[in-house]
Amino acid sequence: MMSSISLVHYIITSAQAWMVTRYDQDHTFWPAVLLLTCLSIYKAFVTEAFIPICSQHCWSEHW
């Protein structure tokens, strides 16, 4: 299952790189594409940063 997710991630990253190099694309889409590309490059860092924030342990302490 994990290899399928990695394959989809690599396909999406290559599609984003292709979208950045297109010259006929409207330039208003570039910030969104570049943001998503940076998030996909730093995917491990982003997920590790949000795990403590979104963990159930933090929510269960308040009850």
Rank of each mutant, 00 (worst) to 15 (best):
L34P: 00
L35W: 01
C58P: 00
M1E: 13
C38E: 12
A17V: 04
P52C: 00
T37M: 08
I53A: 13
E48D: 02
C58N: 13
P31K: 03
V20P: 02
I5H: 10
L36E: 05
I51A: 06
A49V: 03
E48I: 06
S55Y: 04
Q25P: 00
A15V: 11
R22D: 08
Y42C: 04
W30V: 07
V20C: 13
L7E: 15
S55D: 00
W18C: 11
A44Q: 03
W18I: 14
S14M: 12
K43G: 01
T28I: 10
F29W: 08
S3G: 07
Y23D: 01
F29H: 06
W18Y: 15
Y42S: 11
S60W: 03
W59F: 05
S40M: 12
F45G: 10
S4Q: 10
E48A: 07
S3R: 15
H9G: 04
T28V: 06
F50M: 13
L36P: 00
P31W: 00
D26W: 11
I11V: 07
A44G: 00
S14V: 11
I51R: 01
Q16T: 05
E48Y: 03
T28W: 09
Q56I: 08
A44I: 12
T47L: 08
L39A: 08
M19V: 01
L34V: 02
H27W: 04
M2Q: 12
V33H: 01
V20E: 11
L7G: 07
S6W: 14
L36I: 01
F29M: 02
C58Y: 08
L7P: 02
P31G: 06
S3Q: 14
S14N: 09
P31Y: 07
E61F: 11
F50A: 06
S60C: 02
I51L: 03
M2F: 14
H62T: 03
A32M: 07
C54W: 11
T13M: 13
T37N: 02
Q56G: 02
I11W: 14
E48T: 02
L7N: 14
L34M: 06
P31S: 09
L39R: 02
V46E: 07
P31N: 08
P31A: 06
I41L: 12
H62L: 11
S14D: 13
W59C: 01
T13G: 03
E61N: 13
Y23H: 04
S6K: 15
I51S: 12
L34F: 12
A44W: 08
S60H: 14
T13R: 14
V46T: 04
R22I: 01
Q56E: 04
W59H: 05
